[in-house]
Each structure stands twice: as structure tokens, then as C-alpha cells.
């Protein structure tokens, strides 16, 4: 495969995909999207990088190892169950607050969103980890 195009394109592509993914993730509660879809789009950016350059480069760009994203994501999901336990005495119950931000107006924040963020992070770790493993061991590049 001719890599040069990909090698040129992966950086802007990654930025675009990160933004798209954030968008999909954030609107997920109200329209199509959500943690899983967002995470898949996000990981696509890094998979492109891995295919274009190599997996090590992609790993470096991810700041921490993909495995740690998995751990952190799962931990966030577990943590999101705690407020419900404290406030309503039933774990995993949604607890919501409203924050007023200067530009965006009222934003509803709640544990389900934290949970979804956990999903997002975890799935991101999962998909990148999987792809990197396959790419590395089967010597795509």
C-alpha cells in the first residue's frame, strides 16, 4: 500500500476525528451518538496513525498506554455509581446537577454522563489496544 498519502493525512485527520468524536459523544444523550460511537470515531484517528506510521508512534500520541484507558474508563463507570449510593441509597441511580457556564448556558451534569464518559474512555482504550495488537503482531507495517 502506498503510505505516503496516509502519512501526510493522518495528523489533520486525527484532529478532525477527535473533534467529531467529541461532538458525537456530547450530544449523545439527546440525539444519535454517545459513548460507544464517539469512542470508535476517536480511535479511528489513532488507528490511521498506527497504519500510516507505526503502532509505537500512535501509542505515544495517546499519552498513556491504551490499557490504562481501559482501566480508567472502567473505574469511571464504577465511580459513577457511588453518588447514587450516597444520595439515594441505591447505587447507579442518576444524580443530576445544573451548572451555569458563562457561554454555554445551563448545562445538566449527572452521573449517567460520567458513566457514559467512562464508556467512552474505556471503549477508546479497547479499540485502540485491539487494533494496535493486531497491527503489531501481524506486521501490517
Amino acid at each position: 500500500m502506498d503510505k505516503t498519502v496516509l502519512q501526510l493525512a493522518y495528523k489533520p485527520l486525527r484532529v478532525i476525528l477527535i473533534i467529531v468524536s467529541m461532538y458525537y459523544f456530547l450530544r449523545g444523550h439527546n440525539s444519535p451518538g454517545g459513548g460507544f460511537i464517539g469512542a470508535l470515531i476517536l480511535s479511528a484517528g489513532f488507528i490511521f496513525q498506527a497504519m500510516a506510521v507505526n503502532t509505537n508512534s500512535a501509542r505515544r500520541s495517546m499519552l498513556i498506554e491504551p490499557e490504562w484507558y481501559i482501566h480508567i474508563g472502567l473505574l469511571m463507570s464504577i465511580v459513577s455509581s457511588i453518588p447514587g449510593w450516597i444520595y439515594v441509597n441505591t447505587p447507579m441511580t442518576g444524580v443530576w446537577t445544573t451548572i451555569n457556564l458563562p457561554l454555554a448556558g445551563d448545562i445538566k451534569l449527572g452521573t449517567p454522563l460520567l458513566f457514559d464518559l467512562g464508556v467512552y474512555v474505556c471503549v477508546f482504550g479497547v479499540v485502540t489496544s485491539m487494533s494496535f495488537q493486531f497491527l503489531k503482531h501481524i506486521k501490517w507495517n
Binding site: 490499557e67 482501566h71 472502567l74 464504577i78 455509581s81 449510593w85 441505591t90 447505587p91
Partner: peptide, 20 residues
């Protein structure tokens, strides 16, 4: 709560053991 801990705690332990 205790019941749910039976699911959440092993998951937590799985993560911790993975980290360790």
C-alpha cells in the same frame, strides 16, 4: 447495595490487579 457490590467489587478488583 451489598448485592451490587458483588458485581462492582470484582470489577474493581480486576482493574486493580490489572494495574498492579
Amino acid at each position: 447495595m451489598m448485592i451490587l457490590s458483588n458485581i462492582l467489587l470484582p470489577l474493581l478488583f480486576a482493574i486493580v490487579t490489572a494495574m498492579l
